[in-house]
Structures are given as C-alpha cells and as structure tokens.
C-alpha cells in the first residue's frame, strides 16, 4: 500500500472530517489533561496533542473498560439472564507503537479457544491511527523492548517529520480513509526522513535494559530466589497503581450488583491486578501470594516470562507508566531486571 505525506493543515482537516462525518465511528484522540495527557472523545483536531510522551491510561480502556456490565438479570423464580456486549465503532488517533503492541497482546489473551465478545465486538471495528513517539517519557524504555516502532497493529501510522507528517498505511481500511484526505505520495526521501526521525527518537530513551529483551525469561529462570525481590518490594504500598495503568495488564474481577428494586441487577467486570493484596486469595482464607515480595516477583515473572511463553509477546512494552505512577519508585520492570542481572 502506498504511503503518504500529509501537511499539518490537511491532517487537521482530515481529523475534523472524521469527527464530523463519524465515518470511522466515534473519534477518540490524545488530549492534554492538566499538565499530562489522556485519551478522550475529540471535539476538534485542535485538541489533538500528537507530541505527547505518554497517556495516563493506555487505550486498552476502550476495548476493556475499567468497569463493564457483562450480564443483566431479573431474579424472578426463574431468573432471566441476558449477556451484555455491544459493538461500538471507534477511531482512536494518536496511539503510540508500544501501546499498539499492548493491544496485540490483548488480542491474544482475549482470543484463543474461548474468545471474549465483550472485547472483540469493540476491538474488531476499531480504526487505529498511531503516531510515533518522538519525545519519550523519562521513565520509558520502549527502545530496549523493541516496541518503540511497530510494523503491525495499526491502520495508519503518523510520523512527525517537522513540517509534514509521514503516513504509513497499514491496512486497506487505513488506505481507504486516508484516500479521502489531501495528501502526496510518499517518495524515497520521505521514507528516509521518517526512518531518520525514528532513529533519533530511539536515542532519547533515558532508561534502558542492560541485556537483550530475549534474555529476560532465562534471567528470571535463574533468579527466583534472588534477594532483589524482597529488597525492592519492601517499600511497596500494594496500591496496584502499576497494574492499573499498564497497557498489558489483562486481569479482571467479576462482581454482582443488585438494583435498588431488588428485582434484578447486573454482573460487571472491572480491572484487577496481581499486586493487590487479595488477588490470589480463596474463600477458605488461604492467600497464595500473601506477601508483597511474592506479588512483586509474580508481576516481574508475568511480564518477563509467563506471558511470552504463553502468547509469544513479552508482557512489558516499556511505556514507563508504572514507573511514573509508583509512589515508592519500584515498579519499573527494566530497573528490576537490571538489578537481577547485576546481582547474578
């Protein structure tokens, strides 16, 4: 598919047109929120902040919301139960490559032999317009995780060339959309410029892994007993901030809530995470990860070993959100893996 180059002005018109016509669904974009950034419904292209470093929450929230009703029921003598899952066409603009890689992991987890309609009914129709991250967050290490760029998982990918944007076309859906905008065909010099911009951005990452990412599973295999887990988790508040902001944290809890009428209610699922105290406890009172050291270690193994063994994707994309959110400053997987390597 032919890549394009689009001017800032024409990109703004393209986005405003998407908002006005809703031709690709409701338009979500990356916007400023105080002095930070977050994804939200876009009222106009002027709100877009494609120069952002990181969003507070990853875009997974549009496919896997913080809370989501999955069943509605009436508690008559014979209960009437109905599954709740609906399509919602969305166009998300400004997704960074590492967050796209997070979504690819989600696709693997929520697919498989028992695919989840609540996820895929929203995900299947979504248009993803990515943007290369040129000003990485100080805690990010996506370059070490190989997720600072992606060749898959987007319909269109924007790269800020200074004046114009390079538009990498990923799918025919993306091709048909960008065809409606005023663009130029991208030539070899444009492609060269795109790659140069990406290379320069790669150098801006301040945190890096002191090993190849492929070495993480073997490193963890050799360090289960390491003191690093205990030392590093000592100041953990078990607040769960790290897992709540993570683009690859897929876990959920399921709860029931009765309506005030007591004639019916709904079952909903909501984000849950293995760093929270009760995550691995059972009704008898046994908690299989009672100590914060165990929970801390589990998260590191989950990210660096278990998920990659199961789904081929590492469970960390190096976005830096957990490290930014953690009050105790212990959440960064890169820092822990580096400490494990040093202590070995």
């Amino acid at each position: 598919m032919q890549n394009r180059v689009i001017s800032r002005k024409d990109l703004a018109s393209f986005v405003d047109d998407l908002i006005k016509t809703k031709s690709a669904g409701e338009v979500i974009g990356i916007k400023a929120q105080g002095n930070k950034f977050n994804f939200g419904p876009l009222a106009s292209a002027a709100e877009l902040r494609l120069d952002y470093d990181i969003s507070l929450l990853p875009p997974k929230k549009y496919f896997f919301p913080q809370t989501e009703t999955v069943l509605k029921y009436e508690v008559d003598k014979t209960p009437k139960v109905e599954a709740v899952a609906a399509e919602k066409p969305l166009c998300i603009i400004g997704v960074h490559p590492f967050d796209i890689r997070g979504l690819l992991l989600f696709d693997a987890v929520y697919g498989g032999k028992d695919p989840d309609p609540n996820y895929f009914l929203k995900r299947n129709n979504a248009v993803i317009i990515g943007v290369d991250c040129l000003s990485p967050n100080p805690k990010a290490f996506a370059a070490s995780m190989g997720t600072n760029v992606t060749e898959e998982g987007f319909d269109l990918m924007l790269t800020d060339l200074g004046g114009d944007y390079f538009v990498t076309v990923g799918t025919s859906k993306g091709h048909n959309l960008i065809n409606k905008a005023k663009t130029k065909e991208a030539g070899a010099p444009d492609l060269e410029k795109r790659d140069k911009v990406r290379k320069e951005a790669e150098k801006k990452y301040q945190v890096s892994l002191k090993m190849k990412k492929e070495e993480i599973p073997a490193l963890l295999d050799a360090t289960w007993e390491s003191k690093v887990f205990k030392d590093r988790s000592e100041t953990c508040f078990s607040c769960g901030s790290c897992v709540m902001v993570c683009p690859t944290c897929v876990c959920f809890d399921v709860q029931d809530e009765m309506a005030l009428s007591l004639k019916g209610g709904e079952r909903y699922r909501r984000w849950d995470g293995c760093m929270l105290t009760e995550f691995a406890s059972v009704a008898s009172g046994e908690n299989f990860r009672e100590h914060k050291e165990q929970r801390f270690r589990h998260r590191m193994y989950r990210k660096g070993k278990y998920l990659v063994e199961r789904y081929k994707y590492l469970g960390c994309v190096g976005c830096g959100r957990c490290a930014s959110a953690c009050l105790a400053e212990i959440a960064s997987p890169a820092e822990t893996y580096n400490l494990l390597k040093e202590a070995k």
């Binding site: 069943l71 599954a83 899952a85 609540n118």
Partner: peptide, 10 residues
C-alpha cells in the same frame, strides 16, 4: 472474530 453477546464467556 465474528462474535455475538450470546457467546459471552460470562
């Protein structure tokens, strides 16, 4: 994946 609510895992 063509899915409907009726195939809900829940």
């Amino acid at each position: 994946m063509q899915l409907t609510a009726k195939q809900s895992i829940h």
